[in-house]
Computed example of a mutant assay.
Amino acid sequence: MDLSEAHALLDPAPLALETGYERLASGVLHVACRTELHGCTGEMFEWWFRFRPNTQQYIWWHPADHVSSAWAEAQDGTHIGSIHLVEEHFSGSPAEKLAIQFRHPHEYFDAAAYDEARDRGAISAAVCGRVGMGDAPARTGSGEILGGRLLHMGRDTPSGMALRSHFYLGEDMPAQGHGAEEIKAAFPDAFGQALLMHCYNEFTFLSRFLPSLYIAEHRDSVKVRLPW
């Protein structure tokens, strides 16, 4: 599924690739991961990125792989526009520095179709962005980070939230003059497997503490139901 076909994520119907990785004709590596976040909601998921976890909280998110967390260009009340500067391993690989620039979902989906899907509950969370290598990756003249793309799309279910995570690694490389073989060398299939394992594990870890943390941060405005 090319990035241009990502509108399929607005429909809960199963995709041909829900979990796995594939090499696109352009050479771009597409990684898909579906995770069930039991007890979580889309509101909690989006709030986690507005909360902007520090290094200690980032390590909670993945105790084995995550190393450090910092934030740049952050704005109050939204994660959109902020840049998450992280260092992390991918399932045992050497640590990498990444810059994740969060963007509005309308950049990736038709605005009317996205809003309609959100209104009818087909989507309850959307965290989308651009991913560059290093803490100061290349940018376009208007400030967009060059590199890959990530799309985290959530849907509330009776047991929690179903999360679809899709990554497009090397998405900007064809426009920069790099051929398919160069992209494959930069992002080999083994990296796709490592990212898939990392993604599934980190969001499984997140689901274990996110509800409690969200309630603790909103206890004056959220009605808490205790089990006794």
Score class of each variant (00 low, 15 high):
Arg139His: 07
Gly92Glu: 09
Leu3Asn: 03
Ala194Val: 03
Tyr108Asp: 06
Leu37Pro: 08
Val67His: 06
Ser142Asn: 15
Gly77Val: 10
Glu217Tyr: 12
Glu43Asn: 06
Gln101Trp: 07
Ser91Arg: 06
Leu24Pro: 03
Ala99Glu: 08
Ser26Gly: 12
Ala185Cys: 05
Arg130Leu: 08
Glu22Ile: 00
Leu169Arg: 08
Leu85Ser: 10
Glu88Arg: 10
Thr55Tyr: 01
His178Cys: 04
Glu144Ser: 13
Thr55Ala: 05
Trp48Ala: 01
Glu217Gln: 15
Asn201Arg: 15
Ser91Phe: 10
Val86Thr: 13
Glu73Lys: 14
Glu36Ala: 05
Asp220Asn: 11
Val67Asp: 05
Gly81His: 11
Leu206Cys: 09
Glu171Val: 08
Ala180Cys: 04
Cys33Ile: 08
Pro158Asn: 01
Gln176Asn: 07
Leu226Gln: 05
Ser91Asp: 13
Ser93Asn: 09
Ala117Thr: 09
Gln75Asp: 11
Ala136Leu: 13
Cys40Leu: 11
Asn201His: 11
Pro105Met: 01
Cys33Trp: 03
Phe102Glu: 12
Pro174Asn: 13
Leu150Ile: 15
Gly27Glu: 05
Ser69His: 13
Phe167Val: 00
Gln57Trp: 13
Phe205Gln: 14
Ala13Ser: 14
Ala16Val: 10
Arg149Asp: 01
Thr35Asn: 05
Asn54Glu: 11
Arg225Lys: 12
His7Gln: 10
Tyr200Thr: 11
Pro53Ile: 01
